[in-house]
Simulated scan of single mutants.
Amino acid sequence: MKRWRNRSWLALCCALGLVCASPASAGRILVLVHGYLGDAASWQHSGVLPVLEQAGWRFAGDWQSTPSGVRLEPAGRPAGEFAIYRVNLPSTAPLMVQSSYLGGMLNAIAQQHPSDTIDLIGHSAGGVVARLALINYGAGTVTRLITIAAPNLGTDRAAQALDATNDGGLFGGIKRWVVKRQVGEDVYRTVQLSRGVLMDLSPPVPGNLLYWLNGSQHPEIAYVAVVRGAAFGMPGDQVVPAPSQDLRLVPALRGRASAQVVPGEHQLTQQDGLLLAQLVSKPAQTASTSAQ
């Protein structure tokens, strides 16, 4: 019975999302940006993409980052009026590198859909990458950014990982041996390869990336943060603290962003698909516009 009720609720929410996304709002594009150690398939495995498809959105392909630029796979697939693109970024690369690929992808999408608007959606580090792309390359046809559990003010977990894998100094070899025994060779090697992005995701201090980003002028679009809050029986996000996820606390976005606080942990879930279907069914409005 419980499973039937869940399915019925899902069908109802999706139907409402499809009704709200009426032909009057045709020409809408969703671009989904994964987080650290994720990929385009993260949106499928989590259940987010299937929920959005049930709400009337059509998957139009994955944008790939390659040494020669960006490309769409499969190429030439018809997008429709409500199209979803996923992106594949090198998630262990520094955020500036990832944002350069994303900027190229957004430009290519705008060329294919010159009269359509884009909702840019980033999970975890993908939300920060999305902000970087907007600042460095302009908003173009993007009218709204939605971040989900994004470390907009950084996370101490990144700093802890950097410290744990810093094997320099007199006792560096011993420290490396101890940490590898705790986390395993593969995890240790992955963190070592990710030092650039982990530095970028460390809490902002003068001179680092997040300090510069959070003080930089952002395009005049709508900004929405989905914030993971604690709830009864649920500890909340143990990777990125809730205040760090809140775009309203970013100095450059004070008074310009809104937030949706929801219970849950850091990973994407089917519930994110339901919330996104609801959010993107409404026209993008800046905080100043909605306050009028």
Score class of each variant (00 low, 15 high):
1 M>S: 15
2 K>G: 14
6 N>A: 15
7 R>K: 11
13 C>Q: 15
15 A>V: 14
15 A>W: 15
19 V>Y: 13
19 V>R: 07
23 P>R: 09
25 S>G: 04
30 L>V: 04
35 G>F: 01
36 Y>H: 15
41 A>C: 13
42 S>C: 15
45 H>C: 04
48 V>E: 09
49 L>D: 00
51 V>S: 01
53 E>T: 15
65 S>G: 11
66 T>G: 03
74 P>W: 05
74 P>Q: 13
75 A>N: 06
77 R>T: 09
77 R>A: 13
77 R>S: 13
78 P>F: 08
79 A>G: 05
81 E>Y: 06
81 E>P: 00
85 Y>E: 05
87 V>I: 04
87 V>G: 15
88 N>D: 11
88 N>H: 15
92 T>W: 00
93 A>F: 14
94 P>Y: 05
101 Y>Q: 03
104 G>C: 01
106 L>S: 05
106 L>W: 03
106 L>C: 07
112 Q>E: 11
112 Q>W: 01
114 P>R: 02
114 P>G: 05
119 D>A: 04
119 D>S: 08
120 L>F: 07
120 L>N: 05
122 G>M: 06
126 G>N: 09
130 A>P: 08
138 G>K: 08
145 L>Y: 10
152 N>W: 00
157 R>T: 09
159 A>L: 08
160 Q>W: 08
160 Q>R: 06
169 G>I: 13
169 G>H: 10
173 G>W: 08
173 G>L: 03
177 W>Y: 05
179 V>R: 05
182 Q>A: 15
182 Q>K: 11
187 V>Y: 15
191 V>A: 10
191 V>C: 03
192 Q>L: 04
193 L>Q: 10
196 G>P: 08
197 V>G: 03
210 L>N: 03
212 W>M: 15
214 N>V: 03
216 S>C: 03
219 P>N: 04
219 P>Q: 09
221 I>Q: 00
224 V>C: 13
228 R>T: 10
229 G>R: 07
234 M>C: 14
235 P>W: 02
236 G>M: 11
238 Q>A: 12
240 V>I: 12
243 P>C: 04
246 D>A: 12
250 V>L: 11
261 V>F: 00
265 E>N: 10
266 H>M: 00
272 D>P: 10
277 A>T: 12
279 L>A: 01
281 S>L: 04
285 Q>K: 05
